[in-house]
Write a protein that binds this DNA or RNA. Structure first.
Lengths: 197, 197, 197, 197
DNA sequence: CATGAATGAGTTTTCATTCAT
DNA sequence: AATGAATGAAAACTCATTCAT
C-alpha cells in the first residue's frame, strides 16, 4: 500500500516538474530557463529534478514527444471516424485553430525546436515524422473530397503539406491574437484544400 | 583617400562578421553560438567583434532588422508596379517560396526570434509590425482581384494574414525540402487568395 | 546531528573564505584581487565562493560590516562601564592603537572603502554612520572629564571628531611601524581630549 | 616659433589630461577609471594619452608626485620663515585644514595609494618619505615651542607623527564636511602639539 | 604627431551535473 | 529517495596597450 502511495507521489511530482518546465520553457526559452527555475516553480529541490529526468535535454524530449503521440491519436480519431471529408476537414481546422489559441504554450516549444534543429536533432526528426504522418492522415480525406467533387483538383500531398505549413505558421503568428479571427480563418484555410467558394 | 580605404575595410569586416554570425546563429541557434565562434569564423579576433557591435544582442538586432527593411521595399516594388492582381500575387508567392528555399538562413533567425519572444522583445515587436505592413500591402491587391472577379470574396485582411501565416510556416517546414515542391506549392498557396481552380 | 555538523562545516568554510578574502583584499586591493585568488587561498573551488556570497561586492560588504557592529558593542562596553573618564579614554586609545598595529588587515579594508567612496557607496555610508555613533559614545565621556576638571574645555563633538580623524589617520600611517611608538602615541593622543600635561 | 607653439600645445594637452585624470581617479578610483574615460574628458584621443604617459601607472605617478614636491616647498616656506612656533603651527594647521576641504581631489588620490600599497609600492614609499620629511620639518618647531614654554613637553618626533596621522585621517573623514568645523578643529589640533588651554 | 582599429589577457558570473549525507 | 553543497567548464564583456596610416 505504501508502495502505491509512493508511486503516486512520484507521478504527481513528475507532473509538477513537467508542468513548470513547459510553462517556463515556453515563456523564456529553453536556454534561458534553468533547472533551478523549474525546481522552484515546481516546489521541489534543485537536485530532485535529476531523479526524474537524467538531463535537461531529456526533460524537453518528454515534454515535446508525449503530447505529440496523443495528438496524433486524437487527429486520427477525428479523421478516421467519418466519411464526409469537407465537414471533417472543417472540424479539424477548428480544433487546431482553437489549439493555437489555447495551447500556445505547447506550440512555443515546437517553435523553439524547429528554430534550432541543430540543438535538438532528435526532436526535429520526430517532428518531421509527425508532419509526414499527419499529412498521410490528410491525404485520403483530400482525395475523397476531390472524388466527391467538393474540393478542387490538386496533388493531395502538396495540399496536405501546404495546410501543415499554414498551421505551423499560424502558431508563430497568431499566438497573441484575439480569437475573433479564428472563425474567419477557418474558412480561409478551407480554401487551401480547394473548397469552392 | 586613406580614409576611404579604411572605411571600406571596416565595412568589409563588418560584413564578414555579420555573415559568420548569420550562418552560425542559423545553424546552431543564438544561445549556442559564442562570440568566439563568430570571430573565428569571420577571421577576426574575439574582441574585434565588440568594436563593431556593442553586444551579442545588438548583433542579432542588426542581422534581423536590416534585411527586414530591404525586403519590405522589395515587396512594395513587386506589388505596386502593376495592376494585374492575380499575376502579381503569383509572382510574389514564387519569389517568397524561392526565398524560403534559398534564404533559409535568414528565416531560421526569424524563427528563433518568434519562438522566444521574451528573449527578444524588441525584435518580436519589429516582426509583428513587419507582418502588419506586409498585410497592408497585400490588402488592396486582394480587393482588386475580388472586384475583377478573379478571386473569391472574403475579408481581405483575414486572407492576408492567412497567407502570411502560411508563408511563415513554410519557412519552418520546407527548409530542408527539395525545391521540386515549390512549383506545386505556389498554385496551392494561390488558393488561399481564392483563385478559382 | 548530521545537520549540525553540516552547518558547522558551512560556517568553517565561510570563515575560511572570509579570512582569505580579507587578507588578499588588504594586501592587494579589492580590484586586483580576483575571486579565483580568494578561492585558491581558501582551498575551495572558484564557484564555491558564490554559494556563500552572491557577488564580490557582497563579500566585501560582509567583511567590512560584520566587525563594525561588533566593535561598536565592544567600545560601548569599555566606555559605559565606568565613570572615570580620563582612565577610560586612555584605555580606549590603548585598545585602538593596539588594533591599529594588530588588525592592520581590517583597517586596510576601511581605507580602501573610504578612498573610493563612489565604488562603495553603501559601505561609505555605513562607515560615516559608524563615525557618528562612535563620536556620540565619546561625547558624554568628554563632558564628564571637563566637568571634573580633568580635561580642558572645548566642544565635545569637535574633540570627538578630531580624535576619530586621528585614529583613522593612524591606520593609514602607522601600519608598518614598530609598536614601540604605541605607548608614546597614547599620551600624545590624550592631548586631543585636553588632558593637561 | 612654430616649435614654441607646438610645445605650448603639448603642455596644454598634457595639463588637460592630468586634470581629467585627477578628477576621475579621485571620483571613481584608479581601477574603475579607464584611459578612455580620461581621454574623453580631456578631449583627446584614446591613444594620445600614451604619447604623454607611457602607461596608466606613470600617469598616477606624475599626478601624485608632482604636487608632493611643491607642497613640501610650500610647507618649508611657512615653517622656516619665522620663529614664533605657536603661531606658525597654527597657520600651518589652518592651511592644511583648508586644503583638506578645498583640495579634496588630491587627498583622495593619496588615500587610494595608501590604501593599496601593494598596487603602488613606489608611490607608497614616496609618501612615507614625504611623511618623514614633513615630521622632520615639524620637529625643530615643536622643540622651540617647548623651550619657550608655550608647548607641553613630549617627544617631538612622536608629536609630529601624531599630528601627521591626524592630518591624514582628517582627509579621510572630513572631505564632505562643511567647513564650519574647520576653525574649531584648528584649536583642537593645536592640543596635539601640547598647547595649554 | 595623432588616432582609429585590433587584440590578448583577464574577470566575474552562471549553470548543468555530481556527490555525500 | 531527497537534497544542500561543490564544481568544472564556459561565455560575455573589458581594457591597457600596440600598430598602421
Amino acid at each position: 500500500m505504501a508502495r502505491k502511495i509512493n508511486e503516486e507521489l512520484r507521478q504527481e511530482k513528475r507532473a509538477a516538474i513537467c508542468d513548470a518546465a513547459k510553462r517556463l520553457f515556453a515563456a523564456n526559452g529553453f536556454n534561458l530557463t534553468t533547472i533551478s527555475n523549474i525546481a522552484k516553480e515546481a516546489g521541489v529541490s534543485h537536485a530532485s529534478v535529476f531523479t526524474y529526468f537524467s538531463s535537461k535535454e531529456e526533460l524537453i524530449h518528454s515534454l515535446v514527444l508525449e503530447p505529440l503521440e496523443e495528438s496524433l491519436l486524437f487527429y486520427e480519431s477525428i479523421i478516421r471516424e467519418d466519411n464526409q471529408p469537407t465537414q471533417t476537414l472543417r472540424r479539424l481546422i477548428e480544433v487546431q485553430m482553437r489549439m493555437v489559441v489555447e495551447q500556445g504554450t505547447y506550440l512555443r516549444l515546437l517553435q523553439q525546436v524547429l528554430g534550432q534543429p541543430n540543438q535538438f536533432p532528435e526532436l526535429t526528426k520526430a517532428l518531421t515524422e509527425f508532419g509526414e504522418k499527419f499529412v498521410n492522415l490528410l491525404e485520403p480525406l483530400i482525395r475523397k473530397g476531390q472524388e466527391l467533387g467538393e474540393l478542387s483538383e490538386g496533388d493531395a500531398k502538396v495540399i496536405g503539406w501546404t495546410y501543415f505549413a499554414y498551421f505551423n505558421g499560424a502558431g508563430l503568428i497568431y499566438l497573441d491574437l484575439h480569437d475573433g479571427l479564428t472563425q474567419f480563418t477557418v474558412e480561409c484555410a478551407m480554401r487551401i484544400f480547394g473548397l469552392r467558394t
